[in-house]
Design a binder for these strands. Sequence first.
DNA 1: CGGTTAATTAACTACACAGGAAAATAGGTC
DNA 2: GACCTATTTTCCTGTGTAGTTAATTAACCG
Lengths: 113, 113
Amino acid sequence: MTVDADPLTATFAALADPTRRAILARLTRGEATVGQLAEPFDVSLPAISKHVKVLQRAGLVEQTRRAQWRSCRLRPEPLRDVVTWMEQYRDFLGDSLDRLDHYLTDLQKGDRP
Amino acid sequence: MTVDADPLTATFAALADPTRRAILARLTRGEATVGQLAEPFDVSLPAISKHVKVLQRAGLVEQTRRAQWRSCRLRPEPLRDVVTWMEQYRDFLGDSLDRLDHYLTDLQKGDRP
DNA sequence: CGGTTAATTAACTACACAGGAAAATAGGTC
DNA sequence: GACCTATTTTCCTGTGTAGTTAATTAACCG
């Protein structure tokens, strides 16, 4: 993966790693520092730091500095882009994606945050 | 990506390539041989053949031999697994995924093909 | 300022992947 | 069998990535 890949490619590439998916799952339970994210894993801190950077590049994680801590927060937009991409397969997945489609359309019109 | 990656990882890795996503999009319009899949792209046939193999390994494409042609067909299961995985982010994506969740649950119970 | 903590960067190894060209396989036709 | 077509396999190159340890940056604390 090049650094200038299109957003969808960057998102799928970011999701194509179990450690990164686990990091995202952890972040659904609230913000966390890089050190906190690293705790459950048996890998070095630099490794986690790089994973976080991949997630940032894909727009899935946002990092804010608080003193010497980097607090990581989950960003939903790329996942919504994935859902949007999957809509072209609605005939294969069933009509539920139609409803999802409408929801996202409404969302773009500003009907909901 | 190792060859023995878990299914979700293999699926996301397969989707993390624009050429492969284009191949999938083409297959929503019906079956196609490897040669037909290669036509729109400015890459060699072996390259496409390898992309198709990655898609097969992820379960996204099924190949059936007809004489010397390999007809490729889209398989929806891995995409459904992606939707299932995304359900843990429903709070971030909105309640539409709840409905999708119910749909997939009904589907597992055999309410629909 | 010296020390401590949090996180990143640098340098390196090992491996996987995208791509091409060329050779090999497989099936159909004559 | 010889030949043609479709596809895959093999071999090669360049590049990206996951991981390590060691060094570096950044911010706070006394």
